[in-house]
């Protein structure tokens, strides 16, 4: 008990110490998937899938259309039940569930056309951030990181496809969550925006977060691991 408290105190100290990067705090974070099987619409899509990703790492999931990339991400986000196998999260408290630590980004942006970009992001910041985490960025800063500062007060519905995508990416930055589950994050982005987003992803890894991204296009992360689905066929 005393040991446990001592350890917690040490963690708090690490968190408060100004010179420490945050990487150490989350370095124990590890997403472990063992023998996962998932069905979608009654049809088995994934079977016997095992991999693990640690804090600070990125995993790129590739594979042809229909091999279960999106299914895997939805299952990790807790939106699809798994048939068998296990998704485990190491290095966090027992009471914490994976979906509460994860950002999920799919083809839909999750934004309301009638509200401004700022109102949309303010809402997700309040709804998705666990506590006042210092790694959550203010809305204005998140928007400048994706190159969308000028659209702060524009209605979301008035943006172009690429701008909408960038606003959706800014959602990942306004509420810090260590796990990013990204399904085709680069859709509709131009080259400059891709580079900005690659930098944001590198930042996220440096803060100790981990990324699982399904994509057909290179993400711009050199050190990312790769998981190929449906390779046997």
């Amino acid at each position: 008990m005393a040991l446990r408290r001592g350890f917690l105190y040490w963690l708090v100290l690490m968190e408060k110490s100004p010179h420490r990067p945050h990487a150490e705090v989350h370095s124990a974070l590890r997403l472990k998937v063992e023998n996962l099987a998932v069905a979608r619409g009654g049809r088995p899509v994934l079977a016997g899938l095992s991999f693990s990703v640690s804090g600070g790492e990125a995993l790129v999931v590739t594979g042809r259309n229909g091999t279960g990339k999106s299914t895997l991400l939805r299952a990790l986000a807790g939106l699809l039940p798994s048939l068998s196998g296990e998704v485990r999260l190491e290095g966090v408290g027992d009471a914490v569930e994976l979906p509460q630590l994860a950002h999920y980004l799919a083809h839909a942006d999750g934004m309301k056309a009638a509200l401004t970009v700022e109102e949309n992001l303010d809402f997700w910041a309040a709804y998705l951030s666990s506590a006042a985490d210092r790694r959550s960025r203010p809305v204005a800063q998140a928007l400048s990181m994706v190159g969308l500062s000028h659209a702060l007060r524009a209605p979301f519905g008035a943006l172009s496809a690429g701008q909408k995508r960038r606003a959706a990416l800014a959602r990942l930055l306004v509420a810090f969550r260590p796990i990013w589950l990204l399904d085709e994050p680069l859709t509709a982005l131009d080259r400059a925006s891709r580079e900005k987003f690659a930098a944001a992803m590198r930042d996220h890894c440096a803060l100790g977060g981990l990324i699982v991204a399904a994509t057909h296009e290179p993400l711009g992360l050199e050190e990312a691991g790769e998981l190929v689905l449906g390779g046997a066929k």
Partner: peptide, 17 residues
């Protein structure tokens, strides 16, 4: 339905609420 179409419904599942 509006939330389901724009993807917000999935994200509402992910909140701590």
């Amino acid at each position: 339905q509006a939330d389901a179409e724009d993807g917000s419904l999935d994200l509402l599942h992910l909140g701590e609420t």
